Amino acid sequence: MSGLLGNHFITQIGILVNDIEKTSKAYSEFFGVPQPEAFLTDTLDKAQTEYNGEPSVARAKLAFFDMGSLQLELIEPDEHPSTWRNYLNEHGEGPHHIAFVIEGMKEKIELLDRKGFSLQQKGEYEGGRYAYIDTFKDLKVLVELLENDKK
């Protein structure tokens, strides 16, 4: 497969919100699906979050809707500097990223950086890792890379 990511299937759309409970309820009612439980991302010691190359204590409340072949992620960031907080402050509520499942996170980040798309934030989650790449200038949205550990 060609392309920079080796995969062109969008797996997730991330949306920034100010009130995750209110917005989650609205999505639940709109689509007639159960409202997911919102949860807080891990602390720095577990998540190993880095924002603009520096360790970050930033956390966010997340809620996930499985919409068939696509997952909808609602994100309510805390007040600490992060891609989520800064994007919400600059652009307001709405789409933040489209995500793709990839293999070879380190290599993909280096490849994208050479193409002019810099790493904005990265971290770990149970079962894998993520990286937000600054593709906004060209794609008008950020790209998130998701790499899940092999089972």
Rank of each mutant, 00 (worst) to 15 (best):
L40W: 10
L40S: 09
T41L: 04
T41Q: 13
T41F: 02
D42T: 07
D42R: 14
T43V: 10
L44D: 00
L44E: 08
L44V: 01
D45L: 07
D45P: 00
D45E: 15
D45F: 10
D45A: 07
K46Y: 03
K46T: 08
A47K: 14
A47V: 10
A47H: 11
A47C: 07
A47L: 09
Q48N: 10
Q48V: 04
Q48R: 10
T49W: 04
T49L: 09
T49F: 03
T49P: 00
E50N: 12
E50K: 14
E50Q: 14
Y51M: 10
N52F: 01
N52P: 00
N52G: 02
N52A: 11
G53D: 12
G53P: 13
E54S: 06
P55V: 06
P55L: 09
P55H: 09
S56A: 06
S56M: 06
S56L: 08
V57E: 15
A58S: 14
A58Q: 11
A58V: 04
R59L: 05
R59C: 04
R59E: 11
A60Y: 00
A60D: 10
A60E: 11
A60N: 13
A60C: 09
K61D: 06
K61R: 15
K61M: 13
L62F: 14
L62W: 12
A63K: 06
A63C: 06
A63T: 03
F64Y: 15
F64T: 10
F64N: 05
F64V: 14
F64D: 00
F64P: 00
F65N: 03
F65V: 10
D66A: 08
D66H: 14
D66Y: 08
M67I: 13
M67A: 08
M67P: 00
M67K: 00
M67V: 13
G68Q: 05
G68S: 07
G68T: 05
G68Y: 00
S69M: 06
S69K: 13
S69T: 09
S69N: 12
L70F: 01
L70K: 00
L70Y: 01
L70E: 01
Q71L: 08
Q71S: 05
Q71H: 01
Q71G: 01
Q71E: 12
L72H: 09
L72E: 03
L72D: 08
E73W: 07
L74T: 02
L74Y: 06
L74S: 08
L74W: 08
I75K: 09
I75D: 05
